[in-house]
Computed example of a mutant assay.
Amino acid sequence: MQQTRNRAAIREPQPAPVRPTLPPLLHRMKLAKHSYILMGPYMILFFLFTVLPVALSMLVSFTYFNLLEFPQWVGWRNYTRLLLEDDVFLIAIKNTFLFAFVTGPVSYLACFLFAWLINELSPKIRAFMTLVFYAPSISGNIFFIWLIMFSGDSYGYVNGFLMRTGFILEPIQWLQNEQYVLWIVMLVQLWLSLGVSFLAFIAGLQSIDRTLFEAGAVDGVRNRWQELWYITLPAMRPQLLFGAVIQITSSFAIAEVSIALAGFPSVNYAAHTVVTHLMDYGSIRFDMGYASAIATVLFGIMVGSNMLVQKLLRKVGE
Score class of each variant (00 low, 15 high):
187 L>E: 00
315 K>N: 11
24 P>T: 09
170 E>S: 15
30 K>A: 05
68 L>K: 11
276 T>W: 05
58 M>V: 09
281 Y>S: 05
182 L>A: 07
312 L>Q: 13
220 G>F: 02
78 N>R: 02
82 L>H: 08
9 A>W: 03
25 L>P: 00
45 L>F: 15
180 Y>D: 02
127 A>I: 02
298 L>Y: 00
131 L>P: 00
157 Y>M: 14
195 G>Y: 14
123 P>K: 13
140 G>M: 14
203 A>L: 12
211 T>V: 04
170 E>F: 13
100 A>M: 14
305 S>I: 03
229 W>M: 02
97 F>E: 09
29 M>Y: 12
129 M>Q: 06
47 F>H: 03
270 A>K: 12
138 I>R: 09
114 F>P: 01
247 Q>A: 15
269 Y>V: 01
183 W>D: 06
52 L>A: 10
175 L>E: 09
94 K>E: 08
110 A>D: 02
100 A>V: 08
243 G>S: 11
136 P>Y: 01
54 V>A: 12
160 G>E: 11
194 L>C: 00
238 P>E: 05
35 S>V: 13
74 V>N: 08
102 V>Q: 09
149 M>C: 09
192 L>Y: 09
72 Q>N: 03
175 L>N: 10
290 Y>V: 07
281 Y>I: 04
257 V>W: 01
175 L>Q: 08
260 A>Q: 15
206 Q>K: 15
218 V>Y: 04
217 A>M: 01
84 L>P: 00
186 M>Y: 00
225 W>R: 03
295 A>H: 03
164 R>C: 03
269 Y>H: 13
180 Y>I: 05
206 Q>M: 15
271 A>N: 10
20 P>E: 11
99 F>Y: 08
289 G>M: 01
182 L>H: 10
191 W>C: 13
252 F>M: 03
245 V>C: 14
43 M>T: 13
72 Q>G: 03
315 K>P: 06
